[in-house]
Design a protein around this nucleic acid. Sequence first.
RNA 1: GGGCAGUUAGCUCAGCGGCAGAGCGUCCGCCUUACACGCGGAGGGUCGCAGGUUCAAAUCCUGCACUGCCCACCA
Length: 897
Amino acid sequence: MPDSDTKSPEIPKAYDPKAIEARWADFWVKEKLAEPEASSKKPPFVIVIPPPNVTGSLHMGHALNNTLQDILIRWKKMSGFDALWVPGTDHGGIATQNVVEKLLKSEKKSRYDLGREKFLERLWQWKKESGDTILMQLRRLGCMLDWSRTHFTMDEKCSQAVLRAFLDLYKKGWIYRGKRMVNWCVRCRTALSDIEVEFEERKDKLYHIRYPILSGKADGWQGKPLVVATTRPETLLGDTAVAVHPDDPRYEKIHGWWVQLPLVDKEIAVISDAAVDPKFGTGVVKVTPAHDPADFEMGERHHLEQVVVIGFDGKMTPEAGRYAGLSREECRKKILEDLEAQGLVEKIEDYPHSVGTCYRCGTVIEPLVSDQWFLNTKEMSKEAGDATRKGGVKIFPDSWTKPYLLWMDNLRDWCISRQIWWGHRIPIWYCVPGEGPEHPSLRTSCPPVASADSPGKCGRHGDRSPEETAGQHFEQEPDVLDTWFSSALWPFSVFDWPDPVPEFKKYYPTSVLVTGHEILYLWVARMVMFGLAFQKKVPFSQVFIHGIVRDKSGKKMSKSLGNVVDPLVMMEKYGTDALRFVLASQSVPGRDLQISDDSFVGARNFANKIWNMSRFVFMNRGTGPASKDAPLELCDRWILSRFQETARSVTGSLESYNIAQASRTLYQFLWSEFCDWYVELAKARMKESLWILEQILSGSLRLLHPIMPFITEELWRGLGRTGSLLLEEYPEPEPKWMDKEAEEQMAVLMDVVSAVRTVRSEMNVPPGNKIALVLSVAEDSQKSFYQEHLSYIRHLCKAENISIGKGLAKPLKAATAMVRRTQIFVPLEGLIDFDKEKTRLAKEVQGLEADLEKLKARLSNPDFKKNAPVEEVQKAEARQAESAEKLGRMRDLIASF
RNA sequence: GGGCAGUUAGCUCAGCGGCAGAGCGUCCGCCUUACACGCGGAGGGUCGCAGGUUCAAAUCCUGCACUGCCCACCA
């Protein structure tokens, strides 16, 4: 018996991804297959990568995001498009600065110890190491990125784009500086925008605190304190009023009274404001204008004093008197102790509520008043919303359109300044006299100057004599821009705007943006706004939103939870194609992905199955030439038809971004149809089948290539082809090979074979034993059909001496007896009851016909078309077409019996 | 408080008007000359609950329950 391993020593029995992956990844780069053909007449298909932050290495979310993009790029390239995928990385603002600060911490240093310049040097050094790692890892994933266009959000070109964009917006008056309450992270020591705050549900306490009443002797209030409810007793030190709802009958007599602020020698007024919810707590609220956004606004309305008791470092300020220097948490504890001591705590309730935290470090946000730069997005967001409503930006799945528009329509001004050092320094210059407060704006009375370079003079001092302006110099705004500012320019900064490369016209707007829903507002919405503002065109016409990678139990993967599945480890262990297949086959539109270590085994096995199926074909090529001219018989017609249907379905799924469906269709076809049935049948008639085997294999490799590029390239070579699959055409379904009759007939035979196998198994006939088979059919007319395909049944059931008769039905007991003589009797009457099937189908056809009649009547009614909403009419028409098509299919099916 | 998903086999999930499915796990039998990372077979389901529409509902509509996510100045 010839051993297959000695027969083809160069093809190992088990697929070993490691042996080939690096080779192909290099090949694609070396052959410049990812570079577009700008001068070709092919229509462009362009994706710009969501640039990973340079914070470390590739995680599963990156692997998913980039696998999906690569699938689209490869598919479109094979489908005749001029495909371009632009790579790059993001400086990542706070996220990256935090990473380096953590490194410094291990050296027991802070960024202030190093100073701005030295600290930035460290960051650039880190960027160099981390950024290139990520790009290399993307290459290992197989990503067909055009590396010659790699950008970094802080490189020279992107910085030019940021500068230009800032100055344009500043000139329009949309960027302004203002003293506002912002979300302050006391750990990162910077302001954050509203969407950079993440709310976290916490089991907290609601403290009811007594504020003694000082004035008034109206009925019922003698000696009683006013009780306020708060979750933050420590802010009491900054209270400048208490408030009630104007129409609250319980408190209508006490408006304008005075109460004693506990622990502080201070009297504060009772004000009335409609923002107070009478149903909350006691209906009385303490007002701390310096430390709560709602109170801040209330303070503005009532001209209340702002008493800052918590500083930018999260510690109590000197204003907090004897509590100064304590942290927020310590202060709360101390305050409560002191209040208890004075009997001023009425009660403490459990109170679950959500607390704002920093999206980068998780520290509880402190609302603080500070000077910040803001971008008024009113006009931009309106334009962006309208563009989306008009269909200029289509979001898949559509369920995200509504929340996206809701956000866009309710935008408040964007706080774009950050008090960190890593990022684009704001191009504003102040003309200042000399030493003084830290921030240059506090040292000058001159208006700030927006400029690309350090300006030589400001508007006010420009025409004065040098003596008058002695000591005057210019200092740049120390703040940097929110990292998402440069991200919002990404779709055109990668093409070197404001001095774009010549092919910019062809490649902008891009085709599709592929991203997870967690940055829909943070990034996608802002790209649309900036695209319209600076290019007058939306940056992409489609947005493909994929899910978030979660662990086995549905939790988000995070280092702190220790539930991360590292894509690099999985690639190493199971192969990159297996990783890609897992991610692809789990990417159901609108759903998050749940991935665990063992998700990969199935995908690895699938790769191995394809490997061995191909190996089988290769082995048989050696036995003789494939005969193109062998007449096609049923199983050939069947598999050819199934292949066309598979190609049709896969393309359709890809077009609607249903990557999971495309992957599963291919899996099902290759394993359960091609391998399990056709390849088995082919063994009995290799000479006649070889050509079809090769055809289907070659087509399948092409169909599968975008999802599993490595193994398919390797097998393509094994098939004796040269070049890359990327240069081959993506299979299109050919109607001439569609064969409903063959599919129906094969389905019947497959059912028969299954039935026989079941009986064999139930009767404990060893798989190796041949059996004699008696098939009992319902009608004489069916005999010829089975007779004609006896060889299939013989081969797949290991049967010989098959006899077919009509009405041979006997109880299964009889079959048992017969098995002893290795004869199996299989009644087919019950298995495939043609009459019953026909009746069922006839009923369905009747239903469809009735439905169609009704629709027709409705649509031909002129009143309906006139009065019904447009969508209603369209829906009816669509349903009519659908039903008609289905009816046709049904009738064909019945006819095939 | 508002919005959006989800609830289908022991587990993870497809299906989304026309015969309830896959992978994994379980059980039985097989190293059948591509593959034991494999082959054949079996068992396993009131499709969350309650109504409604329909000739026909896991699928469409209404309500409810639970889970998750997003949004909101829950002091």
